[in-house]
Design a protein around this nucleic acid. Structure first.
Lengths: 370, 370
DNA sequence: TTGTAGGCGTTATCAC
DNA sequence: GTGATAACGCCTACAA
């Protein structure tokens, strides 16, 4: 049925190996031969059979990205970025949704599909520090997020503490003294909420501001609605504040809504900053200042590390049987994207990026490789 | 290196074929034999080599879903649903992002990756009615969306006109007489905007309401910000209205924002309904009533049709060389999900579904198969 | 119920 | 530079 190399070889009057050479860009081929082969390929509409190639090369050219859910904007945008980065390197991404369930997250590491691809980029949400053993796998693995540290795998994470601190200092640098935080998880030690809250406290301290418990708004789920509720609660309680740091953008957008409902001007009366820099942040009114945790760089770095582990220059590349490199931990640059909600720009479009050396904000902009 | 069937066979003291039979669930195997084989599989940690199986069976067990961008919530949620539906049938999905560019959309139909999977679910946004020829491909293809009709492929679309009409009638059934529409594209003949606007006009007519040009708000891009702008414009112009039908949820959420800014109570003064029923609709304040175009069913049906075309009961299933079935067009049920923005529920959570026979709303709830 | 032979389409190894 | 030939690991006959 399908056209094979054999057919092409016959048509071009060469051997099958020559066709293979042409297809794979082997350089030492007479130009004339190549042309003939290429003509035959076009005529016959030949396409390499990936299954056969994969069987032979022991490589699929696919990598897996496992995330909780694509319905969550952060992960959808992360997936977008990972796919694009992989694409640029000639690789294809297969997405696995775990629903943040232990069972499915475990399955990702060992299940049926595991063997469909050459490596895994994994953002766990159910598995935690107690499951370190599960991550000791015998295939290329790059971990994402802040649930698990110290696993025997490469890890790309974000500098939650430093970035949160910078966000807080950014608000302080605008002259704000009563900076609320929304989305805290009281008593929690692990995960984004704990880390970002810690950064908030560090920021206060460095700015010489006191930590005020009533300025801390709890919100279990980080949704718009919970953000709005936490904000409303605080306002209804008569808490005085002139700035809000929301631990993610959904919370921030919800808080923005509540502020409006209370007739509070943003950024005039209250400055607002979020975290994640999701697409929506650009489109709110006023546009939302946010911390870009380096999503694109995270995606890019994760793909890069994984492909390095896979040891290939391309999907068909040779497996360099080199030394097993030590596991690396990479923390991409974060930056504050200044928009209207902190008065950083006058227009409706994002523009000024408050980065490492940007005026008024001292943002730790690390790229740590351990 | 890797464990093969051969190793397992040897260990279990059976032939390779027996191992194959066990692995593939062939029923006629002595229980004892099966146990021995299974034990050997566990001991050795054997996993089928997909590449080899694929080569042999001429099937990959993968399907492609091509969408413009995962960053767009509607497509992220669609992808979520498609992955889940395929997963339930034992298939795996590979996502391709086209950025809505002609080049990439064309490539999806014929490019390098085409041969990585057994079939394609494709939601084009750049290719249009003029490109019908491109869709005449020789592999299983299911089209999504409303850009292309009449292509030689199965097609799952939504009943834009009927659903938009139902949305309009829903507002009318609440006693609203001045129903605005937001997101119109003046002069456009193809695509969602045109179809939904047509449904709006049909709804008005059926409700005995006049079509009033000043109640039509244009919005090129369907974003929150453009929705807010269109709404504000209308309000600032002093247009009187008591209901708004936004052509998608982003527009609706933007409009909601503008209504709030103008101190207009929703749903008290103005009732609001969106389209798409994205996740965010649940979390706005007030929660947004929306038209669920049957996203889950679209995903489900698309997968179903595609697998049918592929002619398989499972990823390894046999290819029924039956008659080439005629191309089908399926229009899943749409339904209105009533929430607070139309006063349909009292709580913060979505609950009542105004469907086919629900009181007050006559919603065409077709499942057309052509 | 289980075993044997052969080939799926490709790439790698070697001659030529 | 190019051409035979042997794997890669599995599944489909068919045979026993």
């Amino acid at each position: 049925m399908a056209v094979t190399m054999h057919d092409v070889a016959q048509r071009a009057g060469v051997s099958i190996k020559t066709v293979s050479n042409v297809v794979n860009g082997y350089p030492y081929i007479r130009a004339q031969t190549r042309e003939r082969v290429e003509a035959a390929i076009d005529d016959l509409g030949y396409r390499v059979n990936m299954s056969a190639r994969n069987l032979r090369t022991r490589r699929t050219g696919l990598i897996t990205l496992a995330v909780p859910e694509l319905s969550l904007p952060y992960f959808a945008e992360l997936a977008d970025a990972v796919i694009s980065a992989a694409d640029a390197a000639g690789w294809t991404v297969l997405i696995e949704q775990t629903s943040a369930s232990r069972e499915r997250e475990t399955e990702v590491l060992s299940g049926r599909r595991r063997h469909l691809t050459d490596g895994l980029i994994f953002s766990p949400l159910a598995l935690g520090p107690d499951d370190l053993g599960l991550f000791a796998v015998d295939f290329p693995l790059v971990l994402l997020g802040e649930r698990v540290f110290g696993a025997p795998a490469d890890h790309v994470t974000m500098n939650n503490v430093a970035a949160a601190k910078a966000a807080t200092l950014h608000l302080a640098s605008l002259g704000r003294r009563r900076i609320a935080v929304i989305g805290a998880h009281e008593g929690e030690q692990v995960g984004s909420a704990a880390l970002r809250t810690a950064g908030y406290r560090e920021g206060l301290e460095e700015a010489g501001l006191p930590f005020v418990p009533e300025l801390v708004g709890e919100a279990g789920l980080w949704h718009r609605s919970t953000g709005a509720e936490a904000m409303s609660r605080m306002l209804d309680d008569g808490v005085e504040l002139d700035a809000v740091f929301a631990l993610n953008d959904a919370l921030a957008l919800g808080a923005l809504h509540a502020l409006h409902a209370h007739r509070i001007d943003v950024p005039g009366d209250v400055a607002l900053i979020g975290f994640d820099d999701v697409d929506d942040a650009k489109y709110s009114v006023p546009a939302l200042t946010s911390v870009d945790p380096g999503r694109d760089q995270i995606a890019h770095t994760a793909v890069e590390l994984l492909l390095e582990r896979i040891g290939a220059t391309g999907p068909g590349g040779a497996n360099g049987a080199g030394d097993p490199a030590p596991f690396r931990k990479v923390v991409p640059d974060s930056r504050i994207v200044g928009r209207e909600s902190t008065g950083d720009v006058g227009t409706g479009e994002p523009s000024r990026v408050v980065g490492t050396q940007a005026g008024g904000t001292e943002l730790v902009s690390v790229r740590t490789v351990v």
